[in-house]
Amino acid sequence: MAEKVVEVTTQMGAGWKVTAQVRDHLLVIDQPTGTNEGANPLETFLFSLAGCISTIAKMVAREEKIALRGIEIKVRGSLNSAGLLGQPSDDPVGFKQIDIDADIDADMSVEEKLAFLDRVCHRCPVHDNLLNKTLVNHQPV
């Protein structure tokens, strides 16, 4: 199968708002102290994880012929904000821990739901990027 490339280009002006036109969608990231027109980057990051898990859950359920009536994903990330504020810290700048709670509305036992969620998370690209190192290059243009 051919490699898929996903690309996003963002713009930021004088304020805190960051926008991107992605296909037919205008995405907005902002700060509460800015114009507060969107979620902040950390909230958006966690939303991406929850959205990916939800989407993969629907795919897996369809493939396995599981009647998935719905799924609610709650994601909590904890971090020490000292690093992102430029202050010294022994903690990572990013999240120290991310907890995922999945309320799976399907006729399955708790054990079956856990096995299903394991299969889903194993196939989720965003989840995988959190568990495994991903080469990230950066440079000014």
Rank of each mutant, 00 (worst) to 15 (best):
M1W: 02
D99R: 14
C121E: 12
V93G: 02
L135T: 11
R23Q: 05
H25L: 09
N80D: 15
Q11R: 13
G86T: 10
T55H: 09
I104L: 03
E64C: 06
R62D: 04
L84I: 15
A67D: 14
L27S: 03
G83V: 10
A39K: 11
V93K: 10
F95Q: 07
Q139A: 15
I56P: 11
V126F: 12
V5T: 15
S78E: 15
F47Y: 05
I73F: 08
S54L: 00
L26C: 12
C52F: 12
L42T: 09
V110K: 13
L130V: 03
E63P: 01
T134I: 13
M59S: 08
E72T: 11
T19P: 03
A20K: 07
D91N: 12
G94W: 10
K133P: 07
L49E: 10
D101W: 13
I56E: 03
L84T: 12
K65N: 14
S54N: 09
A14I: 11
V126R: 02
V141H: 11
G94K: 01
N137L: 08
E72S: 05
Q87I: 00
A20I: 10
V18D: 00
A2H: 06
A106E: 04
E112Y: 05
E43A: 05
L68F: 05
G70Q: 12
H25N: 13
K96S: 13
A14V: 12
G86D: 14
I66D: 01
I73L: 02
G70T: 03
D91G: 07
A57E: 01
A2D: 10
A115H: 13
R119Q: 07
T134C: 14
L114F: 00
G38A: 11
N80K: 06
E112A: 15
G51R: 05
P88V: 01
N129P: 03
V120C: 06
A82W: 07
F47H: 06
I100H: 03
V28P: 03
